[in-house]
Structure formats: structure tokens, C-alpha cells
Simulated assay, not measured.
Amino acid sequence: MSRLRSRTARLVAAAKAAHRRAETRCPVVTHLAERLVSVNIFDTATRLAAQCFLTAVPLLFVFAAYAPPVVRDQLLHSLRSAFGLSGPVDTGVQQLMQPPNEDLRQTTGVIGGLMALISATAVSRAVQRLCGRAWQIPRGGTRIAPWRWVAWLVLWIGALLLEGTLHNGFGLGVWLGVPVTLVCQTGLWWWTQHLLLGGRIGWRPLLPGALITAAALTALSAAAQLYLPRALDRTVAEYGSLGSVFVLLSWLIVVCLTATVSVSAGAVLAQEPFLAGRLGSPAPRRDPEAPPS
């Protein structure tokens, strides 16, 4: 037993020494690893994807069902561009977006739409928690007005409506669509962090995270054009409509994981000495005994 304890102590001491050497040689990498552990990236990304699938997607269909035809067509065009919808999946999405009949409209009405909107604010709160953990803001460190959650949802729907137009470069081609999408994604995530953090962090420190997230999600969007159409067609042929649900949920998890890692990486970079002074970033918390929210 004493040998086992001594070996365990030596292993722990060796691990701590290796950590100190790595922090000296590659401080950014070690700080990023520590931040990702504190954010709990897999749990955060999975919860965010589940909230998107269970609350934001139904809100999107409710919005499309009651929106004017021109808005509904634009949304469908954007979904086709973002996910490469075709065949039975495209037909199913079109059916879900059909306007309700008069009886259903009277049954659901404004109250049903408000309930869908309130439920979808769970996504806003999940993104808010992600940003707070990435920036190590303690639980209860800031109070967010509920209107910010609704404003973020409105922004999200507006950005999705423009997805197809931006992806095609306003009809001029992908060569223009990629840089335009990158710029718009940067602005979207820059404003998202500032809005959902309640202005607790200044604009300049939030820029690295916005740039990294925009670049990662733009690259992921390009990959979706190659992967999703084939995956959806294959799973629908084998498992029916249930297969498309698994594919889309899996893709949402990948997107949310990418966003989680990117926002956290941006916060770490902004707090490193070579950028912190220029950006006016808050000092990072290095106390392992006091984890962020």
C-alpha cells in the first residue's frame, strides 16, 4: 500500500511539473485547455444543441407558418442553402412551413406564438451562460434584462432569413458570398457576446472571439454543403424521416461545439498579455478553487 501511495505521489508530482513546463513554454495552449475544462464544452454544446432543436426550431416553423409568403419563401431558400435540403427532406420542410387553416389559427393565435417565443428564450439563456463561462463571469455577476433574450432571437431569425442571399453573394456567386458571410458572422457574434453579457465586457475584447467563431462557422457552413445532402438522403432512404432528425441533431451538436470552443478561445486570446493591454481586457481568473458560473 505504501508503494502504491508513493508511486501515485510521484505521478501527481510529475504531472504538476509537466503542467508547469507546458504553461511556461506554451501558455496560450495550457490556458485554453483550462478554460475549455471550466466551460465544460461537451456538456455546454450538447445542452445548447438540445435547446435549439426543442425550442428554437419549433419557433422557426411557427414564424414561417404565420409569415407572409415572400418571407416564408426566403426562409426556405436560406434553409436549402444552409443545409443542402433536397428530395423528401425538402418536401417535408415545405409542408411544415405551410400556413395553418383558419381553425388552427384561431386555436393557437397570439398566445401560442408568445408561448413558442418564451420557450425559445431558453436558447438565448444557454448562449448567455456560454459567454459568461468563457469570460469567467461568476454566477450572478450580472443581471440580464429579459428583452435581451428576445432581441437575440429576433436577430437570429433575421440572420437566418439572409443566409441564402449572403451565401450566394447577392446572386454574384460563392466567391463573394464567403467573405460577405464571414463579415456578417463576425458582426453577429460580436454583438451576441456584448448583448448577452449585458455590456459587462467591452467591445474590443470581444472581437477575437467574434472573428474566430465567424471563421469556424463559415468553414463549417461550407462543409455542410458537402456532407449534409448525402447524409440526409442516405438516412431518409434507410430510416425514413426519423433518420433526418438524427442527422440534423448531430450537426447541431457539431455547430454548437464549434461555437463553444471558438468563443472560449477568443476569450483566452483576448486575456493573454500580448493582446490584453491593447484590447483593455479584464484579467483572467487563475484561482482553481473559484470556478466561474
Rank of each mutant, 00 (worst) to 15 (best):
Gly202Thr: 08
Leu48Gln: 01
Ala126Ile: 03
Gly169Leu: 07
Met115Pro: 01
Ala126Ser: 11
Ser81Tyr: 06
Cys131Tyr: 11
Ser250Phe: 15
Thr108Ile: 14
Pro58Arg: 09
Asn168Leu: 00
Ala210Gly: 01
Gly112Asn: 10
Phe274Ile: 13
Ala223Asp: 14
Ser262Pro: 00
Thr107Asn: 00
Glu272Gln: 14
Pro68Met: 13
Gly173Glu: 01
Gly109Ala: 13
Glu23Gln: 12
Gly84Ala: 04
Arg125Gln: 02
Ile253Phe: 04
Phe63Gln: 02
Ser119His: 04
Arg133Gln: 14
Trp147Gly: 02
Ala215Leu: 12
Thr30Lys: 00
Thr121Tyr: 04
Leu36Tyr: 14
Glu272Lys: 01
Ser119Glu: 01
Glu102Pro: 00
Arg25Gln: 04
Leu232Met: 11
His19Glu: 10
Gly87His: 10
Val37Cys: 09
Val236Arg: 00
Thr260Ala: 03
Trp191Asn: 03
Ser281His: 05
Pro99Ala: 09
Asp287Trp: 12
Ala18Gln: 01
Leu96Gln: 07
Glu23Phe: 08
Arg5Ser: 14
Ala223Cys: 12
Ala276Thr: 13
Tyr239Leu: 15
Gln98Asn: 08
Arg286Ser: 01
Val29Met: 01
Ala50Glu: 14
Leu228Cys: 03
Ser293Ile: 10
Leu220Asn: 05
Leu4Ser: 10
Val268Pro: 02
Leu269Met: 05
Phe61Asn: 03
Glu238Trp: 13
His194Ile: 09
Arg278Cys: 12
Leu153Arg: 08
Ala65Asp: 03
Val39Arg: 00
Leu166Ile: 06
Ala50Ile: 14
Gly280Glu: 11
Val57Tyr: 06
Ala237His: 09
Gly198Cys: 07
Gln185Cys: 03
Leu166Tyr: 06
Leu161Pro: 05
Val180Ile: 10
Ala215Ser: 11
Phe53Thr: 13
Leu54Ala: 10
Gln94Tyr: 04
Thr46Arg: 08
Ser264Ile: 10
Gln51Cys: 09
Gly280Ser: 15
Ala82Gly: 02
Leu257Val: 13
Gly158Leu: 08
Pro282Phe: 07
Arg21Glu: 13
Cys52Ile: 15
Arg20Phe: 12
Leu217Val: 04
Arg286Gly: 00
Leu228Tyr: 09
Ala9Gly: 12
Phe53Cys: 11
Thr24Met: 07
Ala67Glu: 02
Ser38His: 13
